[in-house]
């Protein structure tokens, strides 16, 4: 099994693994084979989209101690739990900047619409990317966005965010809408439900709602 390496000898060399190819024995074998190439370098193990177990981390640490050719500097990951585990075990662990890169990539080819008025009933705004509304979204108004939707006012109309995407978020200062659609999933609300500082996020197929207590 081949793993991808990136970086330079001067700064550090990173070994990239993810949920599909993470295998302790294979990683060990790969490093043992590339010992000469990695000689004298600082080494980082990057683990994307996979939650590590405590014994896996300990076994890896034990293995790196036996390899004298390289200096093991720590882990890099995009999973919060991994970072927490590493901190607990006293191993350095960085959150990878892949998330940030992803957002940058999106912003370049998608439009960002900036609307400086209140959307009244019957108004409809569409955008391939993000929408920022400096005003209210009144009942009967519609917003359709390929990306995220931010409402700097009252959100009382219909918002469809993250069309065709797996991740998106909708935020509003005040929220009292009957239904929302995020990444193709419908989220209904009760008639008198209202929230302050409302935030709904879809990540890894899970919908997460955050808010402060409602006005009513």
């Amino acid at each position: 099994m081949d793993f991808k390496l990136r970086g330079t000898n001067v700064i550090a060399i990173e070994l990239l693994t993810d949920s599909s190819n993470f295998d302790l024995e294979k990683i060990k074998q790969f490093i043992a084979e590339k010992k000469q190439l990695l000689k004298g370098s600082r080494f980082i193990l990057s683990v994307e989209d996979r939650t590590l177990m405590a014994d896996e981390v300990e076994e890896l640490l034990k293995f790196f101690k036996t390899v004298n050719e390289l200096t093991f500097c720590g882990f890099k990951t995009n999973v919060k739990e991994n970072r927490e585990l590493c901190i607990k075990l006293g191993v350095p662990c960085d959150l990878s900047n892949m998330e940030i890169e992803k957002i940058k990539e999106r912003a370049d080819n998608e439009e960002i619409k900036f609307i400086k008025k209140t959307l009244r009933s019957g108004d409809k705004i569409t955008s391939t990317g993000d929408v920022i509304i400096m005003g209210d979204v009144n009942p009967g108004a519609e917003v359709e966005a390929g990306g995220n939707v931010y409402v700097m006012g009252n959100l009382m109309g219909f918002v469809r965010a993250g069309i065709g995407k797996k991740e998106c978020e909708v935020r509003a200062l005040y929220f009292q809408a009957p239904i929302l659609e995020v990444c193709g999933k419908q989220v209904p609300f009760e008639r008198n439900e209202s929230y302050v500082n409302f935030k709904i996020k879809v990540k890894d197929g899970k919908i997460k709602v955050e808010h402060k207590t409602g006005r009513n």
Partner: peptide
């Protein structure tokens, strides 16, 4: 009442 308010809101949008 909500029905009247929503219709009024639409009318305001059209006037705009």
């Amino acid at each position: 009442e909500m029905a009247s308010i929503r219709d009024a809101d639409r009318v305001v949008g059209l006037c705009e």
